[in-house]
Nucleic acid binder design. Structure first.
Lengths: 192, 192
DNA sequence: TCGATTGTCTAGCGGTGCTAGGATCAAACC
DNA sequence: GGTTTGATCCTAGCACCGCTAGACAATCGA
């Protein structure tokens, strides 16, 4: 029995290696550079091995996205926990969100821009994704304002941050005024 | 001379055909389906002909984006012109923007999601792009509020709409509440 | 009429995601 | 202990991608 268990462990470890390598490659050179050939070479296995762990490239992106969601939730909670009062919390959240997107562009893409084959905003949504949304919700609920469903407010606030993050990174918005735009968003959207 | 002119006309006409066909194909089956081979087949020329008009696929996307920018500017101005008062104008603008993104997803992608090799938010930004932003600016200036640069307000409002549009279309936000989110955005961001 | 130019095509390069089928090797059974 | 069985992994290859070199035909200017 112990032999089988060892093999299972090794298999699980190799799967983690694949995800970590894919993520590393994506952060270094962008997702376009993450080809099955390059990925296979880096983990020192042949291409078909990837397909014994994942259905295809899409699922690998999905795996990176799930990892990223967990980390994002942690980052959001850490940022808000360190802040005092609703206003400071929302500001910290917004800044932390944009910082995460800027510092981990590949993970952010896997989460919100690419197709990782994951279900969002549904009952069968994977737990890490639900939890990342919950982390936003926890902070934003207290500033949603009267008569506005916290979920709806969170979605809207999140979408605004997402727009800022993506347009800035794609060179559609000049990066200098990011802080001022963020401030404007917080001032106007949050009911303090 | 007239022969040369005729040839120039024919060449220009073929270029329009390429852009129109690329756009059509993208609207029907998504940009992934727009391959140089398929595109060449549809216009009934060989692949290299495309490269005598455009440097590559990226430039074709860029051409579709410029077309789209012009149409978007027209659509935004039409929507705001038909509305009475600042509030109605902003609401109309927001709805028209999201409607445009939903009805012309491929054009929207070419404009704001894909790399068409265009410069944004700079001096050398192509005129259609500047004008599309100007169309937003015209409407949003009057609700920017005191002490807020209209350009900065427009960028922020635009980014929020962009976030809503992309997250909704990518299945990250449930589509049912789009109207309510839009309403919330207008109510909070615009100073009426 | 003859070279030069222009326009277009066929064929092919190196790359992509993905898979069929064969080799290898360890565990299980007689 | 030798044989069979099953899991594991790799080589090789498919159809497709963006893009381009080089051959060929048609047209133009002298």
């Amino acid at each position: 029995m112990s032999v089988q268990e060892r093999k299972q462990r090794e298999r699980a470890s190799r799967e983690r290696l694949i995800v970590a390598t894919a993520r590393e490659l994506a952060e270094q050179q962008g997702w376009d550079a993450v080809t099955t050939r390059r990925l296979a070479e880096r983990i020192e296995y042949s291409q078909p091995v990837l397909y014994s762990h994942f259905r295809g490239k899409r699922e690998i992106i999905g795996a990176v996205a799930l990892q990223g969601a967990t980390e994002m939730a942690v980052a959001m909670r850490a940022a808000t926990a360190a802040a005092d009062g609703p206003r400071a919390r929302v500001t910290a959240l917004a800044r932390a969100y944009l910082a995460f997107a800027e510092r981990h562009p590949a993970v952010y893409d896997a989460l919100f821009q690419l197709d990782g084959g994951l279900a969002y905003a549904r009952e069968d949504t994977p737990e890490p994704l639900k939890d990342a949304f919950a982390a936003l919700l926890e902070c934003l609920s207290e500033v949603a304002g009267d008569g506005v469903r916290p979920e709806l407010f969170t979605e809207t606030f999140w979408a605004s941050l997402h727009g800022l993050a993506t347009l800035t990174r794609a060179g559609r918005l000049p990066p200098e005024d990011t802080a001022r735009r963020t401030e404007l968003l917080v001032n106007r959207l949050a009911m303090l």
